[in-house]
Design a protein around this nucleic acid. Sequence first.
DNA 1: GTAAATAATTTAACACCGTTAGACAAAGTT
DNA 2: AACTTTGTCTAACGGTGTTAAATTATTTAC
Lengths: 199, 199
Amino acid sequence: MGSKERIHRLKENTKVNIINAAHEIVKEEGWQALSMRKIAEKIEYTAPMIYEYYTNKEGILLELTKKGYLLLGERMKEARDRYETPEEQLDAIWLAYWNFAFDEKEYYQLMFGVQVNCCVIEDLLPLESTPYGIATVPIMQLMGIGDPEDDRVCTKYYTYWSIVHGLVSINIVRKGASDEINRQILKDAITGITRSLKN
Amino acid sequence: MGSKERIHRLKENTKVNIINAAHEIVKEEGWQALSMRKIAEKIEYTAPMIYEYYTNKEGILLELTKKGYLLLGERMKEARDRYETPEEQLDAIWLAYWNFAFDEKEYYQLMFGVQVNCCVIEDLLPLESTPYGIATVPIMQLMGIGDPEDDRVCTKYYTYWSIVHGLVSINIVRKGASDEINRQILKDAITGITRSLKN
DNA sequence: GTAAATAATTTAACACCGTTAGACAAAGTT
DNA sequence: AACTTTGTCTAACGGTGTTAAATTATTTAC
């Protein structure tokens, strides 16, 4: 009797429904709005039912993380395989990564621990006390530019900031590479950018 | 009568106590454990009291964010002013930023929206389907290395990843620079790293 | 076809959360 | 001494994740 099969398929189906409902809620209202009761409402069940399918809320998040990685992998592979030379491939791969981050912002936030909540405080501090104000002084000096709002200065500042913040984030949410490798990356990147300021 | 002053100082004092209590809790148990009731317990009050000093929980987070920016600014400025040449200054500034991120991890997480919760999923996927496995193929090709675990490959992968992830994060939690500038940074950084692979 | 056993689903509850309104007591003012 | 202000607490609301028990529906056995 294949009814065992049929039932198993049905169960598998509501497992997927749960995940889809969760994803929808997050897309509509953000991660902070995701609750078991809301998921239940969306699939027309009561909250405790979900625990028959996932051990807890974290189990749902884990499943979504997994889906996210699968999707990101596909996008990157697809991008790579459209080109022949490794140079073009690398361009395409990281562009695909970039696009994934914004097309599937919710997945990206979950996968890499990017929160939104936080508030821009910098505007109420005097420029010379902000990271931007502090770091752009030597940047401007090297570039021979006087205006800290100049796009060329801004670009360089964000280049520094991005690499450092990226490396930091990666190391905070998951132990990234070894300390040795981190130090190497940081040093290389900083001196590389600094060199690029001078011409 | 200076008692107005005395009372004002007392109020200011418990405002500070609240912030300190919050910071302590977060240092001990992480952001997800911070609650109004726990803060109240720590300062030996009841939860509603806190609302006499801060409009709500977000108000407390805002205050902590402000303190974080102040501290980071001090550290960066201090580092910069220890050196004369802009090259050394930039090295020192970004090293100070790096150190702040790990010395004051809790502040950093709040200021720049770095969550920890998330779970490493990559290990259960076949290497060739992970971002690492996909991107290291052209990297190895350009470097003439066969082992994807080679430290030189790993370093380069993390360099790419850091800059892209950093730029993405900055743009998700706060609208960073303009799209124009972002595209510029992304393109420059990617081609820069790619060039560095070939020698 | 009916009775027993199993599975599916819900209700009720627990312990927590942020937040607000109202009560109450202490202090200050007139 | 009476009145007002201030500080503080209790109780509550509506929300959260999660569990245990009760209930309903379905399958199995006779």
